[in-house]
Simulated assay, not measured.
Amino acid sequence: MTALRRNRDFAVLWGGQVVSTLGAQVSGTAMPLLVLATTGSPADAGLVGAAGLLPFLVANLPAGPLVDRWDRRKVLLVSEVMAGLAVVSVPVAMWLGVLTVAQLVAVAFAQGLCLVFFGLAERAALPLIVPAAQLPAAIAQNEARGRAAGLAGPPLGGLLFGAGAALPFLADAVSYALSAIGLLFVRKNLTGGAPPEPLLRAALSGLRWVWRNPFVRTAILLIAASNLVFQALLLVLVVLAQRRHAGPGGVGLMFGIYSGGGLAGALAAARLHRHLAARTVIAGVNWVWAALLPLFAVAAGPVQLGLVGAACAFAGPLWNVVVVSEATLLVPNELLGRVTSAAMTMSWGVMPVASLLGGYLTSSLGPVGALWPLEAVLLAAAVVSLRVRTA
């Protein structure tokens, strides 16, 4: 078996996504700062954040059957090109003096839509690029990729925004272009090959598969709960850090430390996933999160906030590697796009609601008060996690 590091197609795809994910983290950190600098409204920032996540609710189900039917390599390529064109419109509008919140909503939605198609196509292509025995290691490397970008991207995004509000978005546009060029060198045939059938019927087949598998169903519902909390928490932490006298660089530093915990967790998960049962990971991670969230209320500044976030983020990659690997190996590849889209609709569909919820809770209760409803959700998820049965 060819070593994963010598798998050319995986290396090309992985390397391009290192650059693209870094760019997305840079602009993602800058986006709420730009909205807050433009309008001063956390609710507007929550609206833009929700627009970027809305495609996970409305587009995942129809996208899954299409990804199973189309050439996934082309889906990956077109997604990167279209996302790059959307994000470059932000600095252009800034230079022309016509930037509005409505445009930022549209840009965020376009980027989210491209991310939906890219994520589904990448997940479905991965078992065609790497052997089944190497799939957990490949998923762990993808986790490390995202976490490393999350470590470097927020501080860089904050620094670039401080130097010039347009710079983070220009950097993201360049990263999309570089990733698209890399995808031209992927040689593996990644065509899904699913037979054409009515889109609604195909989408519902993925939902039925998920709902009939108790392990996958429960794991997805728990992921939905944690996604709701941690997506809402992002805006809460931005406002909380600003209330504690952090500028753009401080906000970027906070998220950089936060993501550093995720990177450390991804590196640990590459080794630990072989030694821990899925049920142990699911219950343990949910209880760790429930125990850590209240510490944000007493953290004194951006560094302390980042350290608490890092502890939360450390646990996440182990969850992803263990649960995603087990679920991916259960699903026939010709169904993988549909099943993944159904799972993403259920687990990520809550995120636009979470972004709006973060804005609403922060505006009405303040950033500290907003933590307690989120803690209640995590405690409920932790109790449910004790009842999970593995596949």
Rank of each mutant, 00 (worst) to 15 (best):
L221A: 13
A283E: 08
V323H: 05
S205F: 03
H245R: 13
L329F: 03
A313L: 14
I220S: 10
G262D: 04
R387E: 12
D44A: 15
S226Q: 10
Q242I: 08
W211P: 01
N142Q: 13
L167Y: 10
R389A: 13
W95C: 05
C114A: 15
A202N: 00
R73S: 06
A30K: 02
V339G: 07
G193K: 06
W70P: 02
L77N: 05
R274S: 10
A310Y: 04
S41W: 09
L104F: 09
W372N: 03
N213A: 12
A11N: 01
N60M: 13
G40E: 12
V116M: 11
A264G: 14
L36D: 09
V350N: 04
V48P: 09
L365W: 13
A59C: 15
L160Y: 02
A277R: 15
A278N: 02
N286T: 07
W372R: 12
W209G: 00
R208S: 14
G162F: 03
P196K: 14
V236A: 08
F118D: 12
P367M: 05
A342K: 05
F215V: 00
S363K: 13
N320Y: 10
P196F: 12
G369F: 13
F255N: 08
S175A: 14
Q111H: 07
A152Y: 02
G359V: 04
A138S: 07
V298S: 13
R279W: 06
V229D: 06
T21R: 03
V331T: 08
V353Y: 03
P352G: 11
V377F: 12
W372P: 07
F117K: 01
G249E: 14
A315L: 07
F185L: 15
L228M: 10
A180W: 05
L200M: 14
N60A: 14
I220Y: 10
T345H: 06
T100L: 06
A342Y: 11
E197L: 11
A110R: 10
I139Y: 04
N189R: 15
Q111I: 15
G249P: 01
G157P: 06
Q134Y: 07
L85G: 03
P65W: 09
F215L: 11
S226P: 07
L305I: 11
S355G: 13
T340L: 08
A264L: 15
G162Q: 11
G15D: 06
L104M: 15
Q141G: 03
V19D: 01
N320S: 13
V78K: 03
A354V: 09
P32A: 08
G64V: 04
A269S: 09
